[in-house]
């Protein structure tokens, strides 16, 4: 019942959020200097050519009318046509979405595993040299931005010790039997571990670059709340029952300590998705972020609008998932 209420409430706020995003992106990219027609025409085009092309894309109409045309199209599932590629925006964007989703989720999993391991180890050996070393590593991971990690990784594992691919999503010469664009997922389902290994070897470094700063945040926050939880009465009571330190941490403390971290991971994950824009560019990874940069360079207005809207949908969905997870993990909320 409460979960249903959360969902309904969320759906309402999502509609308002998306409407706001639509308005802002539509008008802001038209205020910013540069226009798509100028990008398309060869040098020496006449005023008449410009006018004709503008009319073709509806760019000669008043802004509000243009907005209305776009919005009514979107509501019917038509996101317009990309100016630079002359293909429908929706198809382009949805075609790239799986690549970015796989990259982000892979990065999130890496961040949770690395950060969780750091936090648990740090708590288990708190007050000693191990915890000190973990704190130093966390600090370093946090003070270097994701794209710089990307460059460092390329240097380490792409150049000095070339074990991973530094560009693309999959080796181009491979024959792909996939019917969706979820390559990583589909290669597993089809038990094509050869392809899976190739995809992972491409994805590993960009995902790790995205994951490292988030892992550091998770590690620090989770360790902090684990250490606080370890002093609570119910943990002390569990010790008297005969449980060892490791089991006390995992059984008694982890679940309660994970709650505040979870909220933060939700917020940080949206930053991580934002980070894919630069990381995908750096690794020539064919995802939404890379497409977004091309769209901005080409002043491809409909495509920019489509990508931004899709990002907004992803952010809202991530926040919704976090809220639902929180309700599942915290029994006090479930019955409230």
């Amino acid at each position: 019942m409460p979960i249903l209420r959360i969902l309904l409430l969320r759906l309402l706020t999502t509609v308002v959020t998306l409407a706001g995003v639509a308005v802002i992106v539509f008008f802001v990219i038209r205020v910013v200097p540069g226009n798509p027609i100028a990008m398309m025409l060869p040098p020496g085009a006449t005023e008449a050519d410009i006018a004709r092309l503008s009319a073709l894309y509806g760019l000669d109409k008043p802004l509000v009318t243009q907005f209305w045309i776009w919005v009514s199209g979107v509501l019917q599932g038509d996101f317009g046509t990309s100016i630079s590629t002359r293909q429908p925006v929706l198809g382009l964007v949805l075609g790239r979405l799986p690549a970015t989703l796989e990259l982000s989720v892979m990065a999130l999993v890496m961040a949770v595993v690395l950060g969780g391991a750091a936090a648990l180890t740090g708590t288990r050996y708190r007050g000693g040299r191990t915890e000190g070393a973990i704190d130093v590593a966390n600090g370093m991971a946090l003070s270097v931005p994701d794209f710089l990690w990307g460059l460092i990784l390329i240097l380490l594992f792409g150049v000095l010790m070339p074990v991973f691919h530094i560009s693309g999503r999959v080796t181009p010469s491979l024959d792909l039997p996939f019917s969706t664009n979820f390559y990583l997922f589909e290669s597993l389902i089809r038990l094509r571990f050869d392809l899976w290994a190739d995809i992972v070897a491409h994805m590993f470094m960009p995902a790790l670059a995205l994951a490292i700063p988030l892992a550091a945040i998770i590690g620090q926050l989770l360790k902090q709340s684990l250490k606080e939880t370890m002093n609570l009465d119910y943990v002390t009571l569990a010790r008297t029952k005969g449980y060892g330190e490791t089991r006390v941490i995992l059984r008694e403390a982890l679940r309660n300590a994970a709650l505040p971290t979870l909220t933060l991971v939700g917020v940080q994950f949206t930053f991580l998705i934002g980070g894919t824009v630069i990381i995908e560019r750096l690794f020539s990874y064919e995802g939404l972020g890379n497409m977004a940069i091309d769209a901005v360079i080409n002043r491809d207005l409909p495509l920019i609008q489509g990508i931004v809207l899709l990002f907004a949908v992803i952010f809202t969905a991530v926040n919704l998932i976090v809220d639902l997870l929180y309700a599942v993990l915290n029994p006090r909320l479930r019955h409230a």
Binding site: L232, D233, Y234, T236, L237, A238, T240, K241, G242, E252, R255, N256, L329, N330, P331, R332
Partner: peptide, 17 residues
């Protein structure tokens, strides 16, 4: 195995989850 504790504050001595 052979000892137990009855704690002071029942509100904080049970694991909430």
């Amino acid at each position: 195995a052979s000892c137990a504790l009855i704690p002071q504050d029942p509100l904080t001595a049970l694991n909430p989850s």
